[in-house]
């Protein structure tokens, strides 16, 4: 492998703001990043971090203020590069007067597939994203989740080497999220590179070989998910219900939250078994035991806190 799949160096984007569009605001600040061939790469960051901006720059939809990027060794200026990539925009919207099949047919024509090949491919990919039954329905009648699926289909229709997905799980129900996860894993199995953005840590944790964390347009770190975001257990959470006439053991009183007969306590991992033993003794019914992990929100919250103290006046614009 001579060149990395994606090579971003010093990519910066300023947007004009204000009525006269004179002032500039930096939405992406000097991003340098490499994604290797065959990886699933997670692009993490809260809303407004600059993820979509980065993807639009890579797709040539907007142009950088400075910096360059190469995809499979080709400059992003070069439209020929687009033969090898697929892109799912954030909250995708397509020609709503077309049916799902017609939309895919339109895009397939652009890649120059023959009529037979187009028909065959469209059927296969609609099946893959679970829309086989909706092929003939106009997109204006599609739900958000269905549009997301069509979006994924059009992104992978032409067997691209690299697939860029902007928030692919958003707008999907739990089942849909699982299906998308499976598709991403399939793509990796087929040897393709997947670059996807998300603000949900668990998605990244489950799928990614590596992640990058972006905050306020600045790269915070790149690495394996566990290295970047501490996956350590914070402790264990126990939910239980007290039996009739039972009182909460006094040693838990100060750390339990009680609602009616239900109680919730957090204990360090080492104390788990002694606590369960004690609960059994006083005949409490244990409802659940689960591990406590930091959420991405906790993580970002920590980062934002640090940013705020480090440099004053950073505008955080959550949309």
């Amino acid at each position: 492998m001579t060149s990395p799949a994606i090579e971003i160096s010093g990519l910066t984007k300023d947007y004009p703001v204000g009525f006269w569009r004179k002032r500039m605001r930096r939405s992406l600040d000097n991003l340098t990043l490499q994604v290797e061939e065959g990886e699933i790469f997670g692009f993490l960051g809260p809303n407004g971090a600059g993820k979509t901006t980065t993807l639009k720059l890579l797709m040539g939809l907007i142009y950088p203020t400075s910096g360059t990027a190469r995809v499979r060794g080709r400059s992003i200026d070069d439209v020929a590069m687009h033969r090898e990539i697929g892109y799912l925009p954030e909250q995708p919207y397509f020609y709503d007067y077309l049916t799902a099949r017609e939309l895919l047919d339109y895009f397939a024509r652009i890649f120059g597939f023959s009529a037979k090949e187009r028909g065959e491919r469209i059927a296969r990919f609609l099946e893959r994203v679970g829309l086989a039954d909706a092929a003939g329905i106009q997109l204006r009648k599609f739900s958000k989740g269905m549009l997301q699926r069509v979006g994924i289909a059009q992104a992978i229709l032409h067997d691209p080497r690299i697939v860029f997905l902007d928030e692919p799980m958003s707008g999907l129900d739990p089942l849909g999220r699982r299906e998308v996860r499976d598709i991403i894993l399939d793509l990796k199995r087929e040897g393709r590179t997947v670059f996807f953005s998300t603000h949900i840590l668990s998605d990244a944790e489950m799928l990614c070989d590596r992640v990058a964390v972006l905050l306020n347009g600045k790269l915070q770190g790149v690495g394996a998910p566990g290295d970047i975001v501490s996956m350590e257990l914070h402790g264990m959470e126990i939910l239980f219900e007290l039996g009739d006439g039972q009182a909460l053991p006094r040693r838990f009183a100060d750390r339990a939250t009680v609602t009616g007969r239900r109680c919730r306590i957090e204990v360090p991992e080492a104390e788990l078994y002694p606590v369960i033993e004690e609960l059994r003794r006083c005949e409490a019914r244990i409802l659940s035991v689960s591990a406590l992990r930091p959420t991405l929100e906790d993580y970002f919250f920590g980062l934002v806190g640090r940013e705020k103290t480090a440099s004053h006046g950073v505008e955080v614009n959550a949309r």
């Binding site: 142009y63 950088p64 400075s66 360059t68 400059s75 200026d77």
Partner: peptide, 8 residues
């Protein structure tokens, strides 16, 4: 950075 295609 003005894209090359545009400059052309």
């Amino acid at each position: 950075m003005i894209p090359r295609s545009h400059k052309r």
